[in-house]
Simulated scan of single mutants.
Amino acid sequence: MKELFAHLPDILMLAGAAAISFGAGMVSMPAGWIVGGAFALAGGVILARGDK
């Protein structure tokens, strides 16, 4: 159970990014892909910098 709580912030951020991308996709399909790609790029930059 402690392991789950250690990963909970990451899980919540991923779920939030997915929900925002899905919501943008409901408004406009290309916007959903663009928002999802922007989140993927931002996550990659953060991981590459080692800020996590």
Results as ranks from 00 to 15, higher is better:
I20K: 00
F5A: 07
G43P: 15
G16N: 02
S28L: 09
F39M: 08
V27W: 12
G43C: 15
L4H: 10
R49P: 09
G32N: 03
I11L: 13
M1P: 11
S28V: 10
A48I: 00
G25N: 06
G25E: 01
L41S: 11
L14P: 10
M29R: 11
A17H: 00
G36P: 09
L41R: 15
A38Q: 08
I20W: 00
A40G: 14
A24P: 00
G44D: 11
A42G: 11
A18T: 08
G16Q: 00
A48P: 07
M26A: 07
G50V: 10
M26Y: 03
V27L: 11
G50T: 05
L4E: 10
A15M: 03
A38H: 06
A40K: 15
G36N: 07
D51W: 15
L8K: 06
I34S: 07
G44E: 13
L41D: 08
L8S: 04
L41N: 10
L41C: 14
K2I: 03
V27A: 11
A38G: 10
A42E: 15
A18C: 07
E3D: 09
V35F: 03
G23D: 04
S21M: 04
G50W: 06
L14V: 12
F5T: 09
F5N: 10
A6T: 06
A15T: 06
D10F: 08
G25A: 07
M26L: 14
P9F: 02
G25T: 06
F39H: 09
I20D: 00
G37C: 09
K2P: 02
G36C: 07
G32H: 06
P9L: 02
F39G: 04
A24M: 04
M13D: 04
A42K: 15
L47E: 15
V35T: 03
G50I: 09
F39C: 05
G44Q: 12
K2F: 05
I34G: 07
A17Y: 00
G36F: 04
L41Q: 12
L47M: 13
P9E: 02
A15W: 01
V35Y: 00
H7L: 13
G37T: 04
A48L: 13
G32P: 04
M26E: 10
G44N: 13
L47S: 14
A24S: 03
I34P: 03
M26D: 04
A19H: 00
M1R: 05
G16M: 02
A48V: 02
D10H: 06
L12Q: 01
V35Q: 01
G44M: 12
S28R: 12
K52N: 14
L12K: 01
K52R: 14
A38V: 13
V35I: 04
I20H: 00
F22R: 08
L8W: 05
H7G: 02
P9M: 03
K52I: 15
D51M: 14
P9Y: 04
M29W: 09
K52C: 14
K52E: 15
M29A: 14
G32E: 04
V35W: 01
A19C: 01
A42Y: 12
I11V: 11
A42S: 15
H7Q: 12
